[in-house]
């Protein structure tokens, strides 16, 4: 077996979204883990067909939100009660109802940071070049092309077998993408 070290993976094009979905399902069932699909628009049910797990993003946002809540309350307790206690219209220093808007705002701020930067990190951004752009056909993925790319890093990957497998799954064109 030849070394795949100079390859990014095998790219296969399919005729329509339904074929792509069937192929993604077949690739998933064949045990491939490192593969992705590319289409001009989101295809409902693709996550299940590819066997993707739930995104971790929700947990990242939740943790940021909790930190924001605790931090926001702590900031106000410290500043309003400990560091600089100030009488405001006869209300107690520890004035929790008044802490809610600031606490809420910091929850939103940190959650938004968590969502934005979390998404950035999960998508491995910033990424200046994607080897997929070595293919001329991939540009069709923004117009009328439906693609699967099985990556060479996948333990089950083999240039010949994976290519043959994708052809059998209905690919109308396949090519090897160099790194």
């Amino acid at each position: 077996m030849r070394s795949n070290s100079n390859q990014y993976g095998v790219l296969a094009e399919f005729a329509n979204p339904a074929d792509l979905m069937d192929a993604a399902s077949a690739v998933n069932k064949a045990g491939y883990k490192h593969f992705d699909t590319y289409s001009p628009f989101p295809i409902h049910g693709m996550d299940d067909a590819m066997g993707l797990k739930e995104s971790k993003l929700g947990w990242i946002v939740l943790i940021h939100g909790i930190i924001g809540l605790l931090g926001g309350i702590a900031l106000q307790v410290w500043s309003m009660d400990i560091a600089y206690p100030l009488h405001i219209s006869g209300k107690p220093y520890l004035n929790f109802p008044a802490f809610v808007p600031v606490g809420f705002a910091i929850v939103i701020l940190l959650s938004a940071f968590g969502a934005f930067f979390g998404l950035f990190a999960l998508n491995k951004l910033p990424r200046l070049h994607n080897p997929l752009f070595n293919s001329d056909r991939i540009a069709k993925a923004t117009d009328d092309g439906f693609f699967i790319c099985i990556e060479a890093t996948d333990p089950v990957y083999s240039e010949e077998k994976s290519t043959a497998f994708l052809k059998e799954a209905g690919a109308i064109h396949t090519e090897i993408i160099p790194k």
Binding site: S89, G90, K91, P97, A98, V100, P101
Partner: peptide, 12 residues
């Protein structure tokens, strides 16, 4: 519900 309460509570 909370906003209604807070505005009234704070203005007193």
């Amino acid at each position: 519900a909370f906003s209604q309460f807070l505005l009234i509570y704070y203005a007193n």
